[in-house]
Simulated scan of single mutants.
Amino acid sequence: MRPILSPSKACNAEKRWTLSDFDIGKPLGRGKFGHVYLAREKRSNHVVALKVLFKTQLKQSQVEHQLRREVEIQSHLRHPNILRLYGYFYDQSRVYLILEYAAKGELYKELQKCNYFNERRAATGEVKIADFGWSVHTFNRRRTMCGTLDYLPPEMVESSEHDANVDIWSLGVLCYEFLYGVPPFEAKEHSDTYRRILKVDLRFPLKPVVSSAAKDLISQMLVKDASQRLPLVKVLEHPWIVQNADPSGIYRS
């Protein structure tokens, strides 16, 4: 199925599209700033997810700059594991994002439904990253703290300089949460979560039963010294990944 927008025209999408160009189907999700619907672009019959955001709510929460950044960054990204932003348009009260449709929905909702994944499922499947409101166009070291509390690495908690190695830490947290159903440093109070992260207070519960190979991989990613975390290429070569890798299914993260 061909894209409904060519890369060169994606940034000019607001000049091309209106709501009348789409047949709107069932709702796929609801967020703080609007809703997501299954939709079909009439001219091409291309099925997409149409994210509808309300301007008043964006303004009240002062996140217009995040939306602009999300559109600017995601519209230029081309990768099989990144959810495509085909284009956008707006009217007097709403902003519409034309997104790739990930048929199996949000990964977190699937995890909530299952409580936790078995090891084969945790190591496999095709995940597509979405939501780029906190992203930046840079490879430099940064000091800004942002992101979900449970996924913050020690260097961000300490407001120290950080680089792409924060992603290895987050991947370790994600892997742990897949296998145990909860993030590794979860606590009742935010201050206790911060403390556990800084100490790398990593504990592996007895249940559910998780293999030593999975624990080894997680332990090599959740390392306080960012330079000592297992590089991504080594993550892919780790025995636990190799033994369980069999991609199936596409989820949005």
Rank of each mutant, 00 (worst) to 15 (best):
P3S: 01
I4C: 08
L5F: 09
S6P: 14
S6C: 15
P7Q: 01
P7H: 04
S8A: 13
N12T: 13
K15R: 11
T18V: 05
L19G: 01
I24R: 12
K26H: 15
P27N: 08
R30G: 06
G31T: 14
G34P: 04
G34N: 03
G34M: 02
Y37L: 07
L38M: 11
L38T: 05
A39H: 03
A39C: 05
E41T: 02
N45C: 10
V47E: 13
V47I: 11
V48I: 12
K51N: 14
L53V: 15
F54G: 05
Q57S: 12
Q57R: 14
L58P: 07
V63G: 02
E64I: 12
L67M: 12
R68I: 09
R69D: 10
V71I: 13
E72V: 10
N81R: 06
I82A: 00
L85G: 03
Y86V: 09
Y86R: 08
Y90E: 13
S93M: 12
R94N: 14
R94K: 15
L99K: 00
L99N: 02
L99I: 01
E100M: 05
A102C: 12
A103Y: 09
E106K: 04
K109E: 04
K109P: 00
K109S: 04
L111P: 08
L111H: 08
L111A: 09
K113A: 10
K113P: 01
C114Q: 14
N118G: 08
N118H: 11
E119S: 13
A122V: 02
A122C: 04
A123K: 05
G125L: 00
V127K: 02
A130K: 07
D131W: 06
D131Q: 10
T138P: 05
F139C: 15
F139D: 14
R142N: 15
R143Q: 14
T144D: 09
T144K: 08
C146H: 00
T148G: 05
T148M: 08
L152Y: 14
L152T: 12
P153A: 10
P153F: 10
P154R: 11
P154S: 11
V157E: 08
V157P: 10
I168T: 00
I168M: 00
L171F: 03
L174M: 15
C175G: 14
Y180E: 07
Y180P: 09
V182G: 09
E189A: 06
E189Y: 06
D192Q: 14
D192S: 12
V200E: 04
D201G: 10
L202K: 07
L202I: 05
F204W: 01
F204L: 03
P205N: 06
P208T: 01
S211Q: 10
L217C: 15
L217V: 14
S219Q: 06
M221L: 07
M221A: 02
M221G: 00
V223P: 02
K224M: 04
S227H: 12
Q228R: 14
L230K: 00
P231V: 00
V233K: 03
K234D: 12
H238G: 10
H238S: 10
H238D: 09
P239Q: 05
W240Q: 08
N244M: 03
A245G: 07
Y251A: 14
S253Q: 05
